[in-house]
Design a protein around this nucleic acid. Structure first.
Length: 288
DNA sequence: AAACGGGACAACCGCTGGAAT
DNA sequence: AATTCCAGCGGTTGTCCCGTT
């Protein structure tokens, strides 16, 4: 019979952790082994008690995190594939920063990993471009530059999972990912037509709308993509903006920056930028 | 070779909702 | 009904690694 119930106390602060001799910081191989062995025998859950009984001088919280994000057998390691990146961008446009929700659609990937990807890769691009990553402008860039680029990369790969195949069959544009809130891991793709009138409209998702699943599909909003020849299987390297709408006055070749307020540039149909230059600036920073 | 800086990722913290008592 | 505790979430910080100077 367990008499020492002190381990059941609520997660303590860092200072009190130290007081009771709880370890913090990186996990050692021995600790990992203790945790894995205990869970293999007794299962997971009741983390505070588990930590105590496994002989770990860690909080239950720490044990849970270590298990879920690192030690659990089905955790996938390694870089996110372009397919996974595409899915994250799409899902984030619909779900916002609900990382655990997004992670449900990427088997083997953790919310922490997705969150880190967003912060280190996606937000980095926003920072480089001096745009708020939650702004409609940046959403537009994701829609019209990043995602097409990912699709291009996927098209160039030999192994294409089913979802990607569907995207490719569609030449990217005519499909929406729908019903994502109901059926994690089973995404349905449905055909819908691209309406050019929706492009660059005020319906671009704002930071507020990003938190709902009612925001417009980011793919179908993108102007001039897929490639101008819809039937052509060759991906057009040009990025999405209408040649007739380029506004060189807004771009400074010397600095690589756009001179005016970016929101204004992409916010209205009369305020489009030079997409090729932006694309070059954008992708030169990319790790693809 | 050493110092420095930035990127990537692991881990922690604070908070919240819900279940259990 | 009130309290306590747990699990989970999202934001933030810490640490390691690697490239550059």
């Amino acid at each position: 019979m367990e008499t020492d119930m002190s381990f059941l106390s609520k997660s303590s602060s860092s200072s009190s952790d130290d007081e009771v001799g709880l370890r913090r910081g990186p996990w050692t191989v021995e600790e990992d082994s203790l945790l894995v062995n205990y869970i293999s025998q007794h299962g997971e859950g009741r983390w505070n008690m588990l930590a105590h009984r496994a002989g770990l001088k860690r909080t239950g919280k720490s044990c849970r995190l270590r298990w879920l994000n690192y030690l659990k057998p089905d955790v996938k390691r390694g870089n996110l594939t372009p397919q996974e990146q595409l899915l994250i961008l799409e899902l984030h446009s619909k779900l916002g920063n609900r990382w655990s929700k997004i992670a449900q659609y990427l088997p083997g990937r953790t919310d922490n990993e997705i969150k880190n990807y967003w912060r280190t890769r996606v937000q980095k691009q926003a920072k480089h471009l001096k745009i708020d990553s939650n702004s409609a402008a940046f959403q537009h860039i994701i829609r019209c530059l990043w995602i097409p680029r990912l699709v291009q990369k996927i098209q160039g790969s030999s192994a294409i999972p089913s979802i990607q195949t569907s995207l490719l069959d569609s030449q990217y544009g005519p499909y929406n990912i729908t019903e994502i809130t109901q059926t994690p891991q089973v995404l349905s793709l449905e055909r819908n037509s691209i309406s050019s009138s929706r492009c660059c409209s005020s319906s671009s998702p704002s930071s507020e709308s990003m938190s709902t699943n009612k925001s417009p599909n980011i793919i179908s909003e993108c102007p001039k993509f897929p490639p101008r020849e819809m039937g052509d299987s060759v991906v057009n390297v040009h990025f999405p903006f209408d040649d007739n709408s380029y506004d060189m006055d807004t771009f400074s070749p010397a600095t690589g920056n756009f001179l005016n307020n970016y929101d204004q540039m992409v916010g209205g149909e009369n305020n489009l930028m030079n997409g090729d230059i932006l694309a070059e600036s954008f992708w030169s920073m990319d790790e693809f």
